[in-house]
Amino acid sequence: MTLSAFDFESLARVNPAALSHRCRIRQTPEDFKVEEKLPFEPAGSGPHVMLQITKTDTNTDWLAKELAQFAGVDEVAIGYAGLKDRHAVTTQWFSVNTEGVAEPDWSAFESDLIKINLITRHNKKLKRGALSGNSFKLNLEVLDGDRDSWESALSQIQKQGVPNYFGEQRFGYQMGNLHGVEQWFEQGRKPKSRNKKSLYLSAARSWLFNLVVSERVKAQNWNQFIPGDVMQLNGNHSCFQSENDDTELFERLKTFDIHPTGALAGQGELQSHDECKQLETAVLDAWQAWVQGLSRQGLKQERRALRLVPTEFNWQWHNSRLQLTFFLPSGCFATAVLREMAVVEDSSERIIQADRESV
């Protein structure tokens, strides 16, 4: 399979009316605010300084390197839970192992774009993925679509959630990570750097999952039980199989206590059965070079919820501008929410293109 047929916008939407809505986001970094939520409270003591930092228009990796240089420690001494958008105002935690060095005056690290909100200590390095989720506050400029239609789309998201697609940012600029996967798995051109290898593996599995989700959306059962489904408990990764679509299962689905899942490709047999397995097999068979490539790299079969339910979901109108607030669990994408309400024009993409052309 080549990427000539690849089109992120072709992934199915639940709400067709979203295609008649258009909006613009990220005209300024302040239009896209994210605040990271940890699943624990810092211990208050220990060898690792914990810094809660609000950064504006700043790359997470770059900031981690700057912290290491400022503190006089190796880059490996810096920890953070997740990458955050550059073209945004984001609040996240960093840990700095200061064992063997004098702790600096952290206030001297601040600038117009970097503010330190809290300083405490912890007994462990902050590891990737160690967060419960992110709170979002987004400002959208509505370009097309009447307000009643927008209200209907917003209410639908609030009531039933959205397909849990991996966002476009997972695939790199102009889907570059997927082109890298194609060259690796189909042409034998293995990436040289460890970082690119990791990015490509993640992108490949995410794309295949998105295709499975899209098929379930087309079949109108992305949020329903079908025979052979593997269900996931809300709020964690525990999965189980159910033989029957009984009353209890229906109620648990209705109240978002459980969600149907889709395959994250890797070694071993699909965990699904019957109708669900047939659907997933039909999707993945067209991408066997990718499935086999993931398997050879040691990735194991896993499951991911097909449905994403944003919590604390609210909105306010300010003339033609719409302000959204919501919370998403770790590993979920705000863009998955936005694409169910409109075709989104991201102003930051023009900035990225200009940066690349200036190099």
Rank of each mutant, 00 (worst) to 15 (best):
T261E: 07
G79F: 10
A354T: 15
S111L: 10
T91R: 06
D146I: 07
T90K: 09
E36N: 03
V309I: 14
N244P: 03
R86H: 11
Q353S: 15
R307C: 10
F333E: 00
N244Y: 11
V337K: 04
Q183Y: 07
M175S: 14
Q267P: 10
L83T: 12
A5H: 13
A203C: 10
A289L: 08
L208V: 04
N210T: 02
L11A: 10
S272E: 09
S348D: 08
L138N: 08
A289K: 13
A305W: 00
C23P: 03
T91A: 12
T255F: 06
V359S: 06
P163M: 01
F6Q: 07
G72A: 02
T54C: 02
E35S: 12
V162F: 01
R24F: 08
F185K: 05
R296M: 05
A77H: 11
S10C: 07
K124T: 15
M341E: 00
K125C: 08
V76A: 15
P227Y: 00
D146K: 03
G46H: 05
V181C: 02
I25T: 11
H237R: 04
Q187F: 14
L67E: 03
S238I: 13
I25D: 07
L284A: 01
L294F: 14
P227V: 12
H21K: 08
A342Q: 15
Q158L: 11
S272N: 06
R13F: 12
L3R: 09
S214K: 13
D285R: 07
P329S: 09
N97P: 13
S347R: 06
R321E: 08
E168M: 13
D274R: 12
E66T: 01
A108P: 03
H48G: 10
W315M: 11
G188T: 08
Q52L: 12
A17E: 12
R205D: 05
E66I: 06
D85H: 13
F250Q: 10
T261I: 02
D144N: 15
S155N: 13
G228K: 06
F109P: 04
F313V: 04
D105G: 06
Q297L: 03
Q316I: 09
S111C: 12
S348A: 12
K55S: 09
Y165S: 03
H48N: 13
R24V: 13
Q224M: 12
E275D: 13
K192D: 09
S206C: 11
N195V: 05
F8G: 04
Q297V: 00
W290R: 01
N117I: 15
S272F: 09
V230G: 05
W290Y: 13
Q267I: 07
Q27Y: 06
G167E: 10
L299S: 01
K125D: 02
K124N: 13
Q301V: 06
A305G: 07
A5Y: 07
W315Y: 12
Q174N: 11
D148K: 15
S330R: 08
Q174S: 09
I78A: 00
D105T: 10
I226K: 01
Q27R: 08
D144G: 01
S149P: 02
N236C: 11
Q187P: 09
T311L: 05
P163Y: 04
K277C: 01
M50P: 14
C332W: 00
A77K: 14
P42N: 02
Q271H: 05
R26S: 05
S198T: 06
W184C: 03
Q52M: 02
S135V: 05
V101Y: 04
L264G: 05
I119S: 14
L11V: 04
